[in-house]
Each structure stands twice: as C-alpha cells, then as structure tokens.
Amino acid sequence: MIGKRTRSKRGGKKRESVKGEGWLLPATVSLLLHSLAVALLLLIVPTTETRKVNPVPRHVSAKMVTLERPEPAPKKPVPVAEKPAPKPIAKPRPDQQAIALKQKQAEERKKKQAEERRREERRKADLRRESERKLAEQREHERLERERRERKQKRLEQLQKQQEEEMLAALDRDAQAAEQAREDAELAAGYVGIIRQLVERQWIRPASARQGMKTVLRIQLLPTGELIKVRILAGSGNEAFDRSAYQSVERAAPFTELQDMEPRVFEENFRTLRFVFNPEDLLE
C-alpha cells in the first residue's frame, strides 16, 4: 500500500520538473516505514522466541536448584532466629495485647496452616521431584548401560574384524611366501639335479664299494660355486669308500652353474649341502 501511494504521487503531478524532489521524499518515507516494520518484527519475534526457549532449560534449572538449595538454607536461619527475639519485648500492652494475641494467634494459625500447606506442597513437590529424579536417573542409567553394551559390542566386532583382517593379511603373506618358496624349491631342485649329475660323473667307487655302504658329507660353498670345505659327517666304515666320496665332490667343484642362481635361493639352500653317497648299482 505504501509503495502504491508513493508511486501514484510521483507519477501523478509533475513528472519532469520535480524529478529529484519527488523521488527522494517517498524513498525516505518508505525506508523509514520499512525500518519500522523490520524493527517491530525484530522486537516481537525475539520475545516469543525467548519464552519458547525457557521450558527446555527449566529441567536443567530445576536440577540446579536442588543442588544449590542446601547452601542458602543454613544462611537464613541465622538472621531469622535473631529478628523474632526483640519483637515480643517491644509490645507490652495488656488489652490490646489479648486482641492482638488472638489476632496474632489467628494469624499464626493461618500462617501455620499456610506454612503446613506450603510444607505439604513442598514435600509433595520434593517427592515428585525425587521420583522424577529417580526416574531420570534410572533412565540415564539404562541409557548409559545400553550405550556401554553397544560400545562393547561395537568394539568386539571391530576387534574381530581387525583380527580377521590381520589373519587374512598374514595368510596372504604366507601364501605369497609359500608361492615364493615353491618357486625357490623348484629352482633349487633343478640345481640339485645338476650338482648330483656333476658329482656322480666324478664318483669313482673303489673296488671294495658295496651296495648298502653309506657316507654322509657336508660341504660349504661360496656363491661362485667354489668349495670351501668338505666334512665327513658319517663314515661308511670303509676309508677308501669315504675318500672316494669326498674326492668326487672335490673333483666336481667348482659348481660354476650356481653362479646363475638368484642370491636368495643360494643363501637359503646352497651355502651348506649334505651329500649322501649310497650306491644302488653295486653288488651287496
């Protein structure tokens, strides 16, 4: 409505001559009116909002009262006990005294009754508050308990999940390791075959060699395939046979074929080797 009025003023009489003045006035008025309306709105809306907010904190404040009350209580009785003492001494008149006494008694009765009522109400309120508090406590307790259970359950699940993951990871690692080990073992087996052939080619059994004789040697190798050491772990009881065994290894060395091997496979398998010389193609 205000907007329409300003527009009709502006467009009604002097359109061209009064161009500047005609714009400024209605704009100012409009601004003022708008500001007023906004101010009014701002004034009205917050009040209702503050009221609405109140009930929620009331619970909280109620609780706080019960907590703070015991503090002011001990303070009051001290001034109250001092004040009634001078009053009876200051009014000694008998006639008026009886009436006053009656009035006073009646007042006191009233007061007493009122006080009793108040006390009763307070007691009831206290009881109510107490039961409310208990209920709230119980609810709180239940809530906490529920939360605790949930947390525990969640943690257990988490733990189990974590352990499963760890296990699967370990399994994966093991599977990888097993795969690697299998590959290495195949590789090693190939080289074992080569070494066996080289040694068998060099093993000249003595005339006294017989089926069932057995000599066990341990040798130490360098990654270059060179022989560092040969040791007889278990002799056959026939010195010539034992000697033929270690001589065959000495003759077959260096096992230069091992140079092509991956260092890891060498370290794992070939740094020390056991040889069992056990002829199967001789007479007993």
């Binding site: 090693a188 074992v192 070494i195 066996r196 040694v199 068998e200 080619r201 060099q202 093993w203 000249i204 059994r205 060699a209 341990r218 033929s244 065994a245 065959s248 398998n269 070939f270 020390t272 080797l273 056991r274 040889f275 069992v276 010389f277 056990n278 002829p279 199967e280 193609d281």
Partner: peptide, 15 residues
C-alpha cells in the same frame, strides 16, 4: 631342512 643330495651312481672310471 638342509638340502640333501643323494648320490647313488658312480662312473667307475679308472682313477
């Protein structure tokens, strides 16, 4: 397990 190589054959060449 230490790698064990079984030698069951020989060449029986002259020494």
């Amino acid at each position: 397990a230490e790698l064990t190589i079984e030698i069951t054959k020989g060449n029986d060449k002259a020494i």
